[in-house]
Design a protein around this nucleic acid. Structure first.
Lengths: 145, 145
DNA sequence: TCAAATTAAATTGTACAAAATTTAATTGTT
DNA sequence: AACAATTAAATTTTGTACAATTTAATTTGA
């Protein structure tokens, strides 16, 4: 029994890990036209919803810390997608906001979610179930200690 | 409608990406005792099944290329977990095999899959469904072009 | 048979990812 | 007020990821 559990194919964790990377690969050609990476695209998704946001708030939404975000946001700033500026109210915080250029990519991005869903080949109830289960996994892990 | 699809929370791809990283974090304290990382642990899972394997074969199982594997396998070799040697039959291939030490970690690892499943809080039919759906996603993506 | 095509690793360069530490600003307490 | 504790980013270090290129070995075909 334990023998079988140590087989790669039986590991749900490996499937999630592999699927995440394969999905990211699917995004690459689409995101190339926007000249952003997948994590940068995720940051843009958040910023398109809420133009102003601290690094901390962005990190909470993306499950990423400043060690990852700081350099990534600097790259995005160098590409003129966002602006980073210290908050006046609390100088510890850095506020991230969209530039015109960052804002303008939203239109180009509109077709991406649909294209990806199509590639994944999952629809309707199966898709809903997948969301539900992954949501449960994420919640369990957040709480769990 | 497109508006909603560009929301982070509605993106199944983001959930997979976030879940993969959160799951990896769950492994960390357990794998620390074996002094390996999660991708290294995955390589060991494969090697515990089949002691001898080329880098290419390993890459096919893990969905990783030599650009990732070569440095990782060198680190594992430096830690005395594996041996890398050119194949005699085909000098282009590098054969990876376990050392005594690498072999011996298998026992310590036996409890890990169960511990992780417990953290994820998914059981029975829901777990089976998750496997089935992720398998479908991986297959669709492999074929798709 | 021998040059062209293919293949397997390695290398190069860019970009995450996360733990651990550091720095600077703010808050809470006495 | 003043100092300890806390907080937010940045920095440092190590380790993946992966596209693109290079190198060396093998296979193929005229």
């Amino acid at each position: 029994m334990d023998n079988d559990m140590l087989k790669l194919e039986n590991q749900i964790c490996f499937m999630v890990y592999a699927a995440a990377r394969e999905i990211t690969k699917q995004y690459r050609p689409l995101l190339e036209e926007l000249d952003v990476t997948y994590p940068q695209y995720l940051a843009l998704l958040v910023l398109w919803e809420k133009n102003e946001l601290s690094v901390k708030e962005l990190g909470e939404k993306l499950y990423l810390d400043s060690g990852t975000l700081t350099p990534m946001l600097k790259r995005m700033e160098a590409h003129k997608l966002i602006i980073r500026q210290r908050s006046k109210q609390d100088e510890r915080s850095v506020i991230v906001s969209l530039t015109e250029k960052g804002e303008s990519l939203r239109g180009k991005a509109a077709c991406i979610p649909g294209a990806l869903l199509e590639n994944m080949n999952i629809y309707g109830p199966e898709l809903d179930q997948l969301k539900k289960t992954l949501g449960k996994v994420l919640n369990s892990i957040q709480e769990g200690d």
